[in-house]
Design a protein around this nucleic acid. Structure first.
Lengths: 342, 342
DNA sequence: GAATCATGAGAAAGCGTTTTCTCAGAGCGT
DNA sequence: ACGCTCTGAGAAAACGCTTTCTCATGATTC
């Protein structure tokens, strides 16, 4: 065996001995599972209190087959969106006595499946944010992870709830907002190539194109963070577009700062929109027009969906596929274009 | 027992049966602990692979007495500082095969000790961020949590490593920076009453006062987030101070936006400084002068200190007390005052 | 060729709980 | 006063793994 009895943390046996009962009885009074003589119960409780006994969660987990913990897999903890989801999830889960375990894949897509499996084995369920994972891999992985809640992804398996944001609609509304202001030359500064939510934006913009054939819409490659937005500054200026749809708020902020450095005024010369409405979006200069995603709700709803699955353990009923529609948040980074477009 | 053998997840016994060996042997080949006949080992590995066997971490934890998990207690996951620490910690720990479990106390100081104890029982160690916990409570709690790493707090117990930032020095440097620019009327927009780091700032400012008796320095009550900074706007304007030391970047940003709404120009009318240098500080308008804390390092160093303790389990050696000196980050929110001070 | 030794596999104990099983004793009715 | 039910506590099994203990087998040496 591992450790010969070095002065170990006090366990149920110590309480049992002190109270002069069996450890089964101690367990019973601690969990209130069966009727115990009030006198004995009091004696046990006194002993437990005196010894400051706290049941070992690992032992409990093994016996109970549950850990009261859920895992969350995120691609990048530096992203405010995932931070917010994590926070919402953590707070909601804590309310029900659950804790959350983090697995940050650091954008390494190939690790995501492994991390998720690992997390699932340690926890009672997994919330998976894997925007870049291939569909095939996701389909294969999902059943092995149940209970599972997907964020911004869906599976064909109907017993997996998913929470997603309608990025396609959001980006269309933003584009229409720009058109409504008088812009005729738009550019979309796209996100990571294999991102599912980027694909949704592209699909939305395709629809937009059909409805507005008269509008020029360029597609520029970008990334998902500050720096990539900043790096795209010159390409944006060169594009000649007056209305820029950035992949998200982070990219928009990087772009904003790049444009400022180049002496390009926002919104006088160029209008910029973001996506997500991260907490800082309203504090940029100028405050960022964006599509607001109810990000705190996402986290807490993720927990609710998880809890539903944990409670009805076994019976695999079909689960809700929640979709959130972003809400336009018109601020000061968009305005009518000053120059006449071509 | 809990569950009569409903179609359970496959375990070590299944592999043993399939390979025609005892489960002890399976365990041996999985962990490479003892010499096993190469032929048998191959058979076991084949069986394990075919069954996709993955050892149950809870069982392992119970047998091994370790969970490969550490907990982190934070007062507020919405605060970028704690987000960054969490991230640094998580990434560093993952490198060594450890996961991190979150406990967000939601600023409820009275819960912190309980959460920390809870976390400790589930994990191999705890990183504690509890800026508002009373000193006495901390002293009593610390020994029960070992291995423990304290952030921005210290204990008399020398076997508890702590990582802290020299807020006192940072705030003095910021004040001196303002004085150097010509400001004579300063105001400190303080943080939460019982915050340890706020006390450090106050001590630092006391020193500053002694060195600069000619400078007026007002103390204003505030909080630690956007909103509290925003709410303090009118009090700040009323104070007549031209140089404002905000508790942190969040407060400074709230103040910046409030001043903007009131038509007060920064830095022409009032100079504002923050603290922390959160990622967004350089994107405010104007970019925020602040004292930069090497926040990513804090997280990874926290893990290193934790790992050291976990490795030398038992022998309670005295541990390092690391202190970081903030680095001045002079940006555009501070400048020489336009008006002649009294 | 027998005694010694090394190798390696199975049996079983242990980690700390919960829960089923079992049974002693009390209470009740007739 | 006997037998019945019922209450409640202890014994023991189970959760899934690791590791010590034990012992059989085959190799080595004099």
């Amino acid at each position: 065996m591992a450790r010969r009895n070095t002065n170990r943390r006090i366990g149920i046996a110590d309480v049992a001995e002190k109270a002069g009962v069996s450890h089964a009885t101690v367990s019973r009074v601690m969990n209130g599972n069966a009727a115990v003589d009030p006198g004995i119960a009091a004696r046990v409780r006194a002993a437990a209190a005196e010894l400051k006994y706290q049941p070992n969660p690992v032992g409990r987990s093994l016996a109970l087959g549950k850990t009261d913990t859920i895992g969350i897999v995120v691609p990048d903890l530096a992203n405010p969106t995932f931070q917010a989801i994590l926070r919402g999830l953590s707070i909601a889960a804590a309310q029900d006595g659950y804790r959350v375990l983090i697995a940050d894949s650091s954008e390494v897509t190939s690790e995501e499946a492994i991390l998720a499996g690992e997390a699932r084995r340690r926890c009672d369920g997994v919330v998976l944010c894997a925007p870049r994972m291939g569909d095939a891999e996701l389909e294969e992985l999902a059943p092995t992870l149940h209970p599972l809640v997907l964020i911004n992804r869906t599976t064909v398996a109907t017993n997996t709830p998913s929470l997603s944001v309608d990025y396609g609609q959001g980006i269309q509304e933003l584009a229409q907002h720009l058109v409504g202001l008088g812009h005729r030359r738009l550019a979309f500064l796209s996100g990571p190539e294999h991102s599912a939510s980027n694909r949704q934006r592209l699909v939305g913009l395709e629809t937009f194109r059909k409805e507005h054939p008269e509008i020029e819409l360029q597609m520029l490659h970008g990334g998902s963070n500050f720096d990539s937005g900043h790096e795209s500054t010159e390409a944006i200026i060169a594009s000649g577009a007056t209305g820029i749809l950035a992949f998200n708020d982070l990219v928009a902020m990087g772009l904003l700062s790049g444009l400022h450095e180049h002496g390009v005024r926002v919104p006088e010369d160029i209008s910029v929109t973001g996506f997500d409405d991260i907490p800082f979006a309203k504090y940029t200069t100028p405050p960022l027009t964006t599509a607001a995603v109810p990000i705190n709700e996402l986290g807490s709803l993720a927990w609710r969906r998880m809890r539903e699955q944990i409670q009805q353990a076994g019976e695999s009923t079909t689960q809700a596929q929640d979709e959130f529609s972003p809400r336009m948040e018109i601020r000061k980074s968009t305005a009518a274009p000053a120059l006449k477009p071509a």
